[in-house]
Amino acid sequence: MRFPRSSDTELLDVIDRYVKSTSDGTGRYLHLLHANFSRVEEQERTPFLQSLRSAAEAITDEELEVLLESDWRSRLTAAWLIGVDRRQHFQDMLGDLLLASQLCFAGQGYCFALARFCTEADALYLATYLERYLQQPDCQYDQHWAISALLHIDRQTGTEHAGRFLAPGGLWHQWNDAQFKPVPPSPFISELCALADTPR
């Protein structure tokens, strides 16, 4: 995977416009982190989603690539923008970044975007990720997001990719039971995808 070499000036400009910029001044990435925007009142959520969709349509592929070579805030935001606009040509790049798991929190955005693309290839990336990281109970990465994304794809396509992980005694339960606060798998990414498609 190759990323473009952006200048500091270019990177800071793109970050200011897409990662930090929101009408309330708190930073778009903070609303996207843990899908915080989904837990606020509708009158606050609606303008944020409108802004997110506008940004997803306006940002260029080159600017997205600039963000994907930066820190977790920029990668998280870029992945959400890619997912909202369903720019499927980023599929392999996001899949590779998910499997590498180099930065905290960014994987949330990768899982959302792959769920939005909703193809067999996306399911394979997510299943490969789960196969790798569910066998590492000390790694509390984005396993909840990945299983939710896989459940969403299964629901949309009629497949059963998540079944082998969720079977009694399967990798999901082995990993989840080893966590300080075990949490059952949730279809929350289906809800996020529905919000992304809410009419303006």
Rank of each mutant, 00 (worst) to 15 (best):
A56T: 06
I82H: 00
E62V: 10
M1Y: 05
F188N: 12
G25A: 00
L195D: 08
N36E: 11
S7Q: 08
R73C: 07
F188I: 15
A146W: 03
L99C: 08
N176R: 08
K20R: 15
E62W: 02
T77Q: 00
D142K: 07
E41S: 12
A162H: 05
E10H: 07
G83L: 01
A115D: 07
N36W: 01
L134I: 09
Q91G: 07
H89D: 11
W72L: 10
A100Q: 14
C139N: 08
S7M: 02
F3C: 09
E41Q: 10
D92V: 08
E65P: 05
W72Y: 11
R2K: 14
T159K: 07
E120G: 12
A149S: 10
Q174H: 14
P47R: 03
G158N: 07
L97G: 02
S74E: 09
T119C: 01
F37T: 06
L64V: 05
V66L: 02
S148H: 03
F180T: 14
F117P: 06
Q156N: 14
Y29M: 08
Y141M: 14
L150K: 01
Q102S: 11
D24F: 00
H161W: 14
T9Y: 03
S148R: 02
S38Q: 12
Q102F: 02
E44A: 06
F165M: 08
G95H: 01
Y125D: 09
L126C: 05
P184R: 09
Q102R: 15
G170H: 04
S70E: 10
S54M: 04
L195K: 09
R200S: 13
A127R: 05
D16C: 04
T26L: 06
S51F: 01
G83Y: 00
